[in-house]
């Protein structure tokens, strides 16, 4: 059993710059920030290393950090974010060693590309499709990156982004009340 701080040290020694920082100020989980293009390698290490054995990906969630420049349209009061980041959080659990860790990657909003961890944990397949569906985060080397909740032919972008605007119609059905 290892604490997140110990896991961070081990990862830092093994992966160097790909492991960015650990946030210990959070109220519950300590969060380790890693490189979006290396997360599958780090995941594979965390799964297979005898001291880690993170055999379960409990959750994979997308987050819109909404930390870019907020541009408000004066005419209709709508707004959108320029720049800033989208994030993905990975909650890992080792059933064998009974310890947990949280990973985080942040990617630019204009080009949100994260390496898929589907090859490491099969659970990630649908979770990544959901993050893609709701936030538009592209998971590289995912076997089937399609929308999972919204209709396949959904015209209107990614609904859980903070600056999301619903389309007026879908197949002739008015969406707004």
């Amino acid at each position: 059993m290892k604490t997140p701080e110990e896991i961070f040290e081990i990862l830092k020694n093994k992966f160097g710059d790909a492991v960015v920082e650990i946030d210990t100020e959070t109220p519950v989980d300590k969060i380790i920030t890693v490189d979006a293009k290396k997360v599958h390698e780090i995941g594979k290490f965390l799964r297979d290393d005898p001291e880690m054995k993170f055999d379960a990906l409990m959750s994979l969630s997308g987050v819109d950090d909404a930390n870019g420049e907020k541009v408000t349209n004066e005419e209709d009061g709508t707004f959108e974010y320029k720049g800033g980041t989208l994030s993905v959080y990975y909650h890992l659990h080792s059933i064998k060693l009974k310890h947990k860790v949280t990973l985080k990657v942040s990617v630019p909003r204009e080009e949100p590309e994260v390496e898929s961890v589907e090859s490491v944990w099969k659970t990630a397949n649908w979770h990544e499709r959901e993050a893609y569906d709701m936030f538009g985060i592209k998971f590289l080397h995912h076997p089937n990156l399609e929308r999972i909740l919204m209709p396949y032919d959904w015209p209107g972008g990614y609904p859980l982004r903070k600056d999301y605007k619903n389309p007026e119609y879908y197949h002739g059905m008015k969406i707004h009340f």
Binding site: L149, M150, G156, P159, Y164, N166, M173, K174, I175, H176, F177
Partner: peptide, 10 residues
């Protein structure tokens, strides 16, 4: 964003 506002629309 995903809900039809009343089935009487279809």
């Amino acid at each position: 964003y995903h809900v039809l506002k009343g089935v009487d629309r279809v």
